[in-house]
Design a protein around this nucleic acid. Structure first.
Lengths: 154, 154
DNA sequence: GATTATTATATCGCATACGATATATTTTGT
DNA sequence: ACAAAATATATCGTATGCGATATAATAATC
């Protein structure tokens, strides 16, 4: 049964749809806030914010890529990514230059300092996962559902 | 088996921990972004942002409450809520006044206009849920896991 | 090959979220 | 009662995220 139908049949009146406890969006929103908040002290050790951290994940993986690649990988908008990579450049973790072939493209490349940070960054997911409150089976099921949501367009 | 152990045993080298695809935080973050982004056009019709919408949910439920009650209900900080309620007051949806008994408290009360907005707001979750990509069973399981995460402190 | 469409990015403005710090008020402890 | 602790909020600064709009460069089309 579809989620929405279930909700409709379980409630006495339509106003109950507006209770926080009957929402899915709110636990999603809160759980993500919790996750990011719990990352903060660990990421502070390597002087990264959460968003900078996931940008660096893409950079660590690809080493050389376009701004557009980051936008696509993270499902964010270019006006979110643009100031972010400027900060990462200022920190010396990446270089930014214009593509000489197609001058619309911005080429991002990891620096030596960026590579070195990876060594310390590896400790973050290790420490982070140590007391995570879900089993691996739960995480697998959770990720599957989250992927369905990410691919959903209203 | 704990999530972290599973991840550790499945990977060949520790650097794979830094791949986006091996993260849980990232699908959580993306799915929440998707959910909020999908709400935006619906909420625009009633001139609310997502955060204003969940604040109003608390107000619609309690009608009269303290700023602190909203902070507790939404797991946000008071410096996030304070400017939010000022905007909602400016829109005429709530009133804000100081508690005469305990002058530290800020009392928030719904207005007639705020009550009226509820009538139109009810349509939002109805429309929103129509094409939601998860079954009611999945949503139940999902919420249970999300609650564990929300209650997790590192 | 000039016009149009598409692509990639930049810029601006608005709305969160948080930590850090400060302030006002009430409560607690002695 | 009076100093110290706790509580509730305010203020400031930093860092996202997004829509809207603009611009520059390339691709497509006729």
């Amino acid at each position: 049964m579809r989620y929405n139908n279930q909700v409709k049949t379980n409630i006495k009146n339509k106003y109950e749809l507006l209770l926080l406890k009957n929402q899915l969006c709110f636990p999603m929103y809160s759980a993500t806030n919790t996750i990011v908040n719990n990352y903060r002290p660990l990421l502070k050790d390597i002087d990264l914010t959460y968003t900078q951290y996931i940008v660096m994940m893409v950079v660590w993986e690809k080493k050389k890529l376009n701004e557009k690649d980051i936008v696509n990988a993270l499902f964010l908008k270019s006006n979110t990514i643009a100031p972010l990579i400027k900060k990462l450049e200022k920190k010396g973790l990446i270089t930014i230059k214009q593509d000489s072939i197609d001058r619309r493209n911005i080429i991002i490349e990891i620096t030596k300092k960026g590579e070195e940070l990876k060594e310390r960054a590896v400790e973050v997911p290790i420490k982070y996962g140590e007391h995570f409150p879900l089993t691996s089976k739960e995480v697998t099921a959770l990720k599957e559902m989250l992927n369905k949501i990410v691919n959903w367009k209203i």
